[in-house]
């Protein structure tokens, strides 16, 4: 019996999945309010329920080809979307030469994608450790200036649950990894859900307590949170956090792109399959900008879950 080396460990997959969500958290305009934290928690619970099949599955299985192409196309869309979010963050933070930075980012992403798959997974563990250390500084710096009563401040506009679905779209990719390594994916999915249900709502609540009644701040609220914490006096901080945000976005882009084409790099490229995935990517992109990303994410997950129970022979 030959022993095969696992492509990724549970901690590596969980790190990369958490960093994908973290990249969105840094780059998107997450509203800081108690209601949004509650919505995050609720969405996390709903997604955990959706992932029950992943938790129950013990043996490897084969994802049907059509579902695989859809998920690959979706990965490509996520990579593009993350890159766009990163550019938006660089512009909002008034970083010097955002276009050139993005060009360098693309070079780094393509280099990361060309590496064997474990490279991105291993890097993500180190990056997540750095992110945890950085986040640990926030409460140390801002505990004295937090106002608990701010948690009861009414939000200016109703918060949507759908945005949280859109920003945690990597959920749809979990079954793809679970097909190859159910045990590691199970643990990774559990940590991802844990981070989404506990760590991120906690950061949102902390931000809410820091920002007081200021709710209609235009721009990235994470910059507002940093500005409110006494550790950083300036609004336009371009130090550790910006580097961390860009690194997370880079890693997420690399991960999504590798999910799209990484498996083909070591094998002869079949134009037909790439073409099908690209077609799906374009369709998904069209739906995202014309319908809603959340609906799309739900559809992708539903499709995956419906199809993955097929026996291996049937999909071959």
């Amino acid at each position: 019996m030959t022993r095969t080396t696992p492509e990724f460990s549970a901690s590596e997959l969980s790190a990369v999945l958490i960093l994908c969500r973290l990249a969105r958290f840094f780059c998107c305009e997450t509203p800081y309010s108690t209601q949004y934290a509650a919505h995050m928690l609720l969405t996390g619970i709903l997604q955990a329920i959706l992932l029950i099949p992943v938790f129950l599955r013990k043996t490897p299985y084969a994802v049907p080809k059509l579902t695989m192409r859809i998920l690959e196309g979706f990965s490509l869309v996520l990579a593009a979307d993350t890159a766009a979010d990163c550019y938006r963050l660089l512009t909002a933070a008034d970083a010097p030469s955002p276009v050139l930075t993005m060009l360098l980012l693309f070079a780094a992403v393509f280099y990361a994608v060309s590496l064997p798959r474990p490279a991105i997974f291993r890097a993500s563990v180190f990056l997540l450790a750095a992110a945890i250390l950085a986040f640990a500084l926030l409460p140390l710096g801002g505990l004295s200036s937090a106002r608990i009563l701010s948690l009861w401040t009414s939000p200016p506009a109703p918060q949507g649950l759908l945005s949280e679905w859109t920003e945690s779209a990597e959920l749809a990719l979990i079954p793809m990894f679970a097909a190859a390594q159910p045990a590691a994916s199970k643990k990774a999915a559990a940590s991802w859900i844990g981070a989404r249900c506990i760590a991120l709502p906690a950061i949102v609540l902390f931000g809410t307590m820091q920002c007081g009644r200021l709710r209609t701040f235009h721009g990235n609220p994470f910059l507002l949170l940093l500005a409110r914490v006494p550790l950083s006096d300036a609004l336009r901080t371009d130090g550790l956090w910006l580097m961390l945000a860009v690194a997370c976005a880079l890693l997420a882009c690399g991960f999504f792109l590798q999910s799209f084409c990484g498996c083909r790099l070591r094998a002869p490229i079949r134009r037909r399959t790439i073409g099908v995935s690209l077609l799906f990517a374009l369709t998904i992109l069209f739906i995202i900008y014309n319908v809603n990303g959340g609906i799309l994410a739900c559809a992708a997950i539903a499709l995956t879950i419906l199809q993955w129970y097929r026996p291996k022979e049937a999909s071959a």
């Binding site: 009414s154 200016p156 920002c211 007081g212 009644r213 200021l214 709710r215 209609t216 701040f217 507002l224 409110r228």
Partner: peptide, 11 residues
């Protein structure tokens, strides 16, 4: 400035 604007936009 944050407190001022937050309070001005309050109820």
């Amino acid at each position: 400035v944050g407190e001022l604007v937050g309070n001005l936009e309050s109820r």
